[in-house]
Structure formats: structure tokens, C-alpha cells
Design a protein around this nucleic acid. Structure first.
Lengths: 154, 154
DNA sequence: GCATTTTGTTATGAGTACTAATTATCACAG
DNA sequence: CTGTGATAATTAGTACTCATAACAAAATGC
């Protein structure tokens, strides 16, 4: 997706980006890719992808949740969620329990193993997030997030 | 990639995101996806993808550029660039000329048709960028970009 | 009771990006 | 000038993500 970039440290040379470099969208993409990459590396010891972590976090926050609800908040299509939950269930991290009044749906919850792994993964995630926050510098986090949310709502 | 989200306008319900919602990385992804989507729609009339536009912009800014150099600044792998240039060349927007001292490489430049299309696409891009900028609100653009660049350099 | 909707599932295809290997050319040491 | 290694572009094969369509089972509503 992204290239090593500075092998020879002869970056930039004198190649212009044609105005792209001062574009919010372009920098946004670079930043997003960098964050994603860093988090991916931080989660590697736990064999979790970024999506896996977010799913685990949502289930932890609201146990008994159905797959559809998770897909809605995390913007994951239902078919894709099936595979994700399948894998987490196979690894014994997540349980598909019955929903009292609905025999179609599953009430998702973390197993003890899932909780244990998530606890460690959360620590790694916190370290990663701190790193990103530090890179923010003097910029106020809340105002930054508010601006990004407005962009996300375009 | 992203879901329609508010079909029923019963968003959020009372489902917690487990702390994810105040995470820079998560919001960053949402923002990036939204920007990408908006730009994609803005470029649709010209049958250009986001990557195509950035390639055209770079070529316009520095004509005679080689594929390798473009890949470097835009973070596109060389093999992927071949296909992109192939398509642009087939459409008569870009020309692969000879490089004076090197018969391996191509000197890329825009054809008149490429310049004409780019001019129109740039106008659409400018409108899109203005939209994103407006969403930024009170936040200073330069400080925002500087912060994002620091994140990108993680 | 019957049509419609909803949940999860399966199958499948489009799009994108990565790696490895190939060809042609270049740079340079001997 | 010759051979060795590096470089530009290409090709082929693979993997991953994401999206759509169709489906069965169960729920809902008239």
C-alpha cells in the first residue's frame, strides 16, 4: 500500500507534487495509512488485525450485542462480519450465545480468554494512541477530533 | 468500504464504541474514507480515479518525470504504476516519451487532451477541497496539516 | 395465515496492492 | 571492451479488502 519511501534518503529531489502536498485529503491519507500501519505492528504480537480489535472493544463495551449492530457502528458489512466473528470464535475469544426473544440472532460476548487477550491488546493500543497523540503536538485533541468528525460527515 | 449508515436514522441507539470514538486513529479513518468518497464522486464525470488525478497533477507539475519518481512521491509501487500509466496512455491523456540519456526509462508528459481534461478535473478538485476546508471550521489549516504530517511520519 | 422484513449466511466478483521474476539498459571496475 | 552488478519498466501470480446478490430461517405486521 505504501512504499519504504526513503531508501536512499534522496527524497523529494526537486519533484513537485503539483499542489497535492497542501491538500487535506492527501495528507489525511498519508496520516491514516501511517496510523494504521503503526497499530497493525502494535497488535501483531496478539495476532489481531485492527478490525479485530475494534470488534472486541465494541463487544466488551456492550455484551450481548448482535452482529448487525456491530456492523452498523463500525461500518462493516454484514457478510464481512461473519468471517471476522467466525475467526474470533474459532480462536475461543468470542462466544455466539442465544438472544432471548430471537432465534435468528446471536448475542455476542467475550470469553475469559477473549477478555484476557483484549486486556493485553488494550495496553498496546493505549501505547500506540499515546504515540499518535504526542504527534499531534500543540494541537488541541478535542478540536482536532471535532474537525475530523465534521469531515467524516461530509 | 463504508455503509450507508443512517438508513433508519436510529443511529447510535445506545451502543457504545468502547472508547473507540475518542480515538484519533478511528476518526481519522472515517474522515479519510469520507474525503476519498467525496473526491471519487467529484471525479466521476471525468472517469478518473483519485490516483489518476494525483498522477496527472504530478506529471503536470514536473513534465519529463519517470515512473519511478512518481511512484516515490505518491507512494505507489512501480508495478501498480505501469497499469495506471497504461490506461492514461491508452486514453490519450499521457505520453511516454524518451529520456535523453536513458533508453530504459520513459519521460512522461501530458498530451493536449490530458491537459484539457486535467484543467476541468482540477476545477472539480478545487470545489471538493473547498468543501473539506470548510468542514475544518475554526481550525487553522496549516496547523492541522502540520499535525497530520507529523502523524504521517510516525 | 400470508406477505414482508430482518438476521445471519454463502458464493462470487471487483478493486487494489504486494512479491517475485524477467528484460533491457546503464554504470563502472578491471 | 568486457563482465558484473544495479536500475527502469514490465509481467505474472497472489492475497486481501470490500461489495453485491441470493438464500434460509425466523420474526413482524396486517
Amino acid at each position: 500500500m505504501i512504499e519504504a519511501s526513503g531508501r536512499k534518503e534522496v527524497i523529494d529531489e526537486q519533484v513537485s507534487l503539483g499542489g497535492l502536498e497542501s491538500t487535506v485529503g492527501f495528507i489525511l491519507r498519508l496520516a491514516q495509512v501511517a496510523v494504521f500501519k503503526d497499530l497493525l505492528a502494535a497488535l501483531k504480537p496478539f495476532d489481531l488485525r485492527v478490525t479485530d480489535l475494534s470488534v472486541l472493544l465494541v463487544i466488551e463495551a456492550t455484551p450481548g450485542l448482535q452482529q448487525r449492530a456491530i456492523g452498523e457502528v463500525l461500518r462493516i458489512q454484514r457478510p464481512n462480519l461473519v468471517t471476522i466473528i467466525d475467526q474470533l470464535e474459532t480462536r475461543g475469544l468470542v462466544r455466539r450465545g442465544p438472544v432471548p426473544g430471537d432465534r435468528r440472532a446471536y448475542a455476542l460476548s467475550l470469553t475469559p480468554a477473549g477478555e484476557a487477550l483484549l486486556k493485553k491488546a488494550k495496553a498496546a493500543h493505549a501505547r500506540h494512541d499515546r504515540k499518535v497523540l504526542d504527534a499531534l503536538g500543540d494541537l488541541d485533541k478535542d478540536r482536532m477530533l471535532a474537525a475530523l468528525e465534521r469531515i467524516a460527515a461530509l
